[in-house]
């Protein structure tokens, strides 16, 4: 069987230039959603078609790519996208955050601090933070243009009225560079503080919605809140049972049908690195906790 011959990184050069122009605009106006002519990609919407197009446009032969899905390097989505680029672009891939120059992510920011030499590419399902409050796209665009963001606080108000605290735990709205309100894609709000003043360039691609936006390096990003209900990142009150980390974002894993569960780092690379350097938790059998 003869494999089809692709242009470097799948997309043709004209398309890449078009996407790069959109990216440049996005960087020039932090947080502003730039429309672009999103292409069909050989994967279904919701699998990161936006992120893949952004990655394809910025990646070069010398880049080292890491792809994570909810922090994990070894889920279907992450593995498939890594394979996709190693086949169509022949670039090196890695799972080590420190090594990578381009990191495509679905719904997490790596625990390891990023550097100026890295680019973080987010896969975004719904770029419009006001979508569920104001369904008219013409109206939300006008609201962005005039920075009428009172409505965003109505959502937070509703949270507090209903739950007693701001119950939005992911896709927590932020204001970028004191101007545009932005949906940081469905990252947990635990990750929100990592958005601000980040040395790495952060790009957001929404394929189905045909939007690209960006946070340039060292840009102030503020999570919206009320004076008397300030923003608080959420984290399970536990340690990772594999590496013992007390500062990382944890996944709750159900281990049997009796309600046993364990908490482990959502960022697999962070967890593995810690274990490799001997920071593991007490190496007892997989510690389980029973719910009575």
């Amino acid at each position: 069987m003869t494999a089809p011959v692709y242009n470097f990184a799948y997309l043709d050069e004209q398309t890449k230039r078009m996407i790069r122009r959109a990216i440049l605009k996005a960087i020039a106006i932090p947080g502003y959603q730039v429309p672009f002519a999103s292409r069909e990609m050989p994967m279904p919407y919701g699998w990161g078609t936006g992120g893949v197009q952004v990655t394809a446009s910025i990646i070069g032969p010398d880049d080292i790519l890491k792809v994570i899905d909810q922090g994990s390097d070894d889920t279907t989505n992450a593995v498939s996208i890594r394979k996709f680029f190693s086949r169509t672009a022949g670039v090196r891939t890695t799972t080590a955050t420190r090594e990578a120059t381009v990191i495509q992510t679905r719904h997490r920011i790596p625990e390891t601090p990023l550097t100026e030499d890295q680019v973080l590419v987010y896969q975004v399902p719904i770029p419009e933070p006001l979508r569920f409050l104001e369904p008219r796209e013409t109206e939300t665009r006008r609201m962005h243009a005039l920075s009428e963001y009172g409505l965003m606080h109505v959502k937070l108000y509703e949270d507090i009225a209903r739950h007693g605290h701001i119950a939005t735990t992911y896709a927590y709205p932020v204001k970028v560079a004191q101007r545009y309100v932005m949906d940081p894609s469905p990252i947990p709000k635990f990750d929100n503080p990592k958005l601000t003043d980040c040395p790495a360039l952060q790009l957001f691609g929404a394929g189905r919605e045909k939007r690209i936006y960006a946070i340039p390096p060292y840009t102030p990003v503020v999570s919206l809140d009320f004076d008397d209900h300030p923003f608080e990142p959420y984290r399970h009150d536990a340690q990772c049972e594999l590496c013992g980390a007390a500062d990382s974002y944890l996944d709750e894993v159900i281990t049997d049908d009796n309600g046993s569960r364990m908490f482990v780092c959502s960022d697999t690379d962070y967890c593995e690195t810690r274990r490799a350097t001997g920071k593991g938790a007490q190496q007892s059998a997989p510690a389980t906790e029973h719910r009575s």
Partner: peptide, 22 residues
């Protein structure tokens, strides 16, 4: 706004002019 509580409906204008105290 039919999907938002009465309090949110009344408060919307206040939040629009910059009230940030719940």
């Amino acid at each position: 706004r039919m999907g938002i509580s009465a309090g949110g409906n009344v408060g919307e204008r206040l939040m629009a002019v910059g009230w940030r105290n719940y």
